[in-house]
Design a protein around this nucleic acid. Sequence first.
DNA 1: AGGCTAGTGACAGCCACTGACAGTTGACAA
DNA 2: TTGTCAACTGTCAGTGGCTGTCACTAGCCT
Lengths: 211, 211
Amino acid sequence: METLRERKKRRTREALLRAALELFTTQGYEQTTIDEIVEAVDVSQRTFFRYFAGKEDVAFTVQEMTEAAFVAAVRARPPHEAPMKALRQAFLEGWDAICETVESVVPVELHLRMYRTIESTPALLAAHLRRSAATEETLARVLAEREGVDVDTDPRPRLAVAVFGGVIRVTERHWCTNEDFGPESIRMLTATYLDQVGSALTGNWRATRGR
Amino acid sequence: METLRERKKRRTREALLRAALELFTTQGYEQTTIDEIVEAVDVSQRTFFRYFAGKEDVAFTVQEMTEAAFVAAVRARPPHEAPMKALRQAFLEGWDAICETVESVVPVELHLRMYRTIESTPALLAAHLRRSAATEETLARVLAEREGVDVDTDPRPRLAVAVFGGVIRVTERHWCTNEDFGPESIRMLTATYLDQVGSALTGNWRATRGR
DNA sequence: AGGCTAGTGACAGCCACTGACAGTTGACAA
DNA sequence: TTGTCAACTGTCAGTGGCTGTCACTAGCCT
């Protein structure tokens, strides 16, 4: 049960979020001022900063949700599963649920546009990578606990998530630059990339050139 | 042959760099204002912005040099070497030269302190990761060219550098938090981590727990 | 010696962000 | 229903990073 006050708050917050993303994606992040955002929603600038920590924060509100959902999915994997397999399955099986979570706040289409904007705006890309690093740290601890190893003395948890994170980032870039962004193609692409890590590390590539 | 004008410019630039790093590392990045930096060197604020693109830029001046040196080292590897081996050898063999390059501008000790500051300052860590991502992109293209594959259709170049970058980042963190930061210990640590990537990806870790 | 130009300082201004304080509105009890 | 409290919001003033402008100085060149 939601009180009137809470409803108003949520409306204001979501209005600010939508207006900000719309402006960011159409006219660019740096070209958009806070004043423009609050003008579109008709609140004071001060109010904006009561809902969001800063201009950057609002840009990552949706990402925040997806990352949390993914970490939860990893936590929910059966404990006997091998680490890399747990990461892989959590992503492949949880992808649909993540997309639905996004849709409940903003249209996925807007989210995709925002993703492209992040990728092409240096300041936002930097923030995105830092956030990813933080998520990887969390995941490393989850894996370490699952396997019963010490994350500070055994490098394998961090190495594993670093590799996985690398694959995800490569996928993300592919997602942003290409046309086909259906949930199914993402899943397939990620699975393919994960399979290729082994061959990327060993041997020479000339034997199977032009794949 | 350096003219008087050029000498003065270089002195001003290096003075600003040293003063900035010193202030950043002692009282913190965010706590340091541009005014304090220029006051220490006795130039106007406007002059600072003629030498450095911004407050962030000056913090990464030394890193910029080391990254360029590493990319050059990779380019210099014999072309028959396998990709991961080329990255590995370029790092292990080029590490000493990189340290010397640093020393020619600022004391390595100051550089290490700056590294720690970067790692513990969110805004700087973000910028660092973005810069690393850019370097990785360059390396991926270098590897792709060496192997004669297309970097846009074959994911292996990007996957390989992503894995390598992950190892480097884990090493960096270890470097920052621990005491022993001699050139030799870094080399050994990196080599060890690279060797463990394989076992981090496959099997379960419980068999060799507590390593 | 004198003109040219790179480099500099002083100043005004934009934008993100914050603290302080006062006004307004919803929640809840009397 | 009304009064009170707490939550929420707006206004204002101010800080710090950063940029454009313009006049001035100092090194370079003939």
